[in-house]
Each structure stands twice: as C-alpha cells, then as structure tokens.
Simulated scan of single mutants.
Amino acid sequence: MNDTIHVQLEKLFLSHYKDWCVLSYSYLKDKDEAEEVVQDVCAKVLLKKKTEDVLNLKSYITVAIKNSCLKKIKTQQKFTILSESEIQNNLHDPGEESQLLEQKTGELFRIIEKLPQPAKNIFLRCVIEGEKYQEVADSLGISVNTVKYHIKSAYRNIRSEMISYSLLFLVLLKLIRK
C-alpha cells in the first residue's frame, strides 16, 4: 500500500471513527462489539493490497462495517437457535432418549431383515460395514450399477416401512390420548 492511501485512511479513521462506531452500534446494540467491528474493518483495509483501486474509501469502509455487523448478527442468531434447541434436547430424560433410540434402531434392523436377499446383503455390506461399491461388485461378480440399484431399492423399502411404522405409531398415540 502506498503512503498516500495510508495517510488518507488514517485521516478518515480519525475523523469518522465515532460515526462508524455509531453506525455499528445501531446494528449490534453493544458498544464494545461496535468498536471492535470498526477497528477490524479499518485494519483489514489497511492490510489490503489493492486499496488504491477503491474510488471512495469512506463509502467502502462504511459498507464494509455494515456488512460486518450483519454477518456478526447472523452468526449470533445461529448460536441462539442452537442454544434453544440444546435446551429443548436437554429437557428430555436421557434414559428415555436412549430407550427411544434403541427402539428405533431395533425397528430399523427388523426392517432390514425383511429386505429381499440381494438387496439386504449388498445394503449391509455397503452401508453398515462401509465397503466400497466396487469391492462389493467385484466380490459378487456383478456391476457397480447393479450394486447401486440394490442400495436404492433397499433405501426405498426402508423408507416406506419406516413411514408406515411412524404413521401406525402416530395413530396409536392419538388413540391413547383420547
């Protein structure tokens, strides 16, 4: 960065720092975070190699501060949503949750056992044991596309069985609550 840009940025920083902090504060509602964003943006501009390409440095920094604030807000919202969902998850009894997981896993394996033999065998090897499609195809003397077909078929059957199971569960739950 040449010295004229450096001097220009320094003058802008000194003369508009408070304005930029107010702008940042209007988004973040936190004085320390607002100042941090302004300082970070100015530091990034200072370190940027092609600042001389910027026609209006003041406008550029103002927009950069606004965008940084919006990005920070978006990140904070993600953490807030995550925290709320964690709170909801922690309200459940851990024993109840593991029992439900065990029940669903058991039901899934009962459904897998009902699959037609080739689809079941290929599904277990590829999905459960983690073998590559090519390895399974070579060991069974079939094409990779046949392996893919059987995997798709297995998933289709599992989905339809799980939906039936879930619908049955919901109907029973509704009948119990009456």
Rank of each mutant, 00 (worst) to 15 (best):
L91V: 07
L46F: 14
R125L: 14
V63P: 01
E52R: 08
K66S: 12
N56A: 08
D40G: 01
C69F: 00
S83H: 14
V22K: 14
E97R: 05
A43G: 04
Q39H: 06
T75E: 03
N67P: 03
L101F: 10
Q99I: 04
K11N: 12
T51Y: 03
N89W: 06
E86G: 02
K104P: 05
C69L: 04
K50N: 14
S24H: 02
E96F: 09
I111Y: 07
A34I: 01
I87Q: 10
L47D: 11
V37W: 01
Y27M: 05
K104Q: 15
I122F: 11
E86M: 12
V54Y: 05
P116Y: 08
L57S: 03
K11C: 10
I73N: 03
E86P: 00
F13Q: 09
V22D: 15
E52M: 09
I5S: 13
I65T: 00
K31F: 11
P116E: 15
N90Q: 15
K18S: 15
E84W: 04
Q99P: 01
E36S: 09
T75K: 00
K78V: 11
V54S: 03
D40Y: 00
V22T: 10
L124D: 07
V41K: 03
K120H: 09
L47T: 00
D32L: 12
L28G: 00
I122M: 13
E129T: 05
I61N: 02
K72W: 05
S15M: 13
V127C: 14
V127K: 12
T75F: 02
T80R: 14
L124P: 02
V22F: 12
K120L: 11
H6F: 13
I81M: 15
Y17K: 12
K48H: 08
L101Y: 09
V45Q: 00
S68G: 09
E107D: 15
R110W: 09
Q103H: 13
S15G: 06
L28C: 02
S68N: 13
K58I: 03
Y17P: 02
Y17T: 01
D53T: 02
K58F: 09
K50Y: 08
Q8R: 07
L108G: 08
L14D: 05
D19L: 13
P118H: 11
T105S: 15
S83M: 15
E129K: 13
L55H: 05
D93F: 02
Q88P: 01
Q99M: 13
K72P: 00
V37K: 00
Y17A: 09
R125H: 09
C126M: 05
S59L: 13
V45A: 03
V22P: 04
K29D: 11
N56P: 01
D40A: 01
I122N: 10
E36R: 06
D19V: 05
R110C: 12
E129Y: 10
A119H: 00
Q76L: 13
E36D: 14
C126Q: 06
V7P: 01
L91Y: 12
Q99C: 08
I111C: 09
K120E: 14
Y17S: 10
I65R: 01
K114R: 08
Q76M: 12
V127N: 10
L115H: 04
I112L: 13
L23H: 08
L47N: 11
V63L: 13
H6D: 15
E35P: 01
D40E: 14
N89Y: 07
H16R: 11
L23F: 08
Y25G: 10
E107F: 09
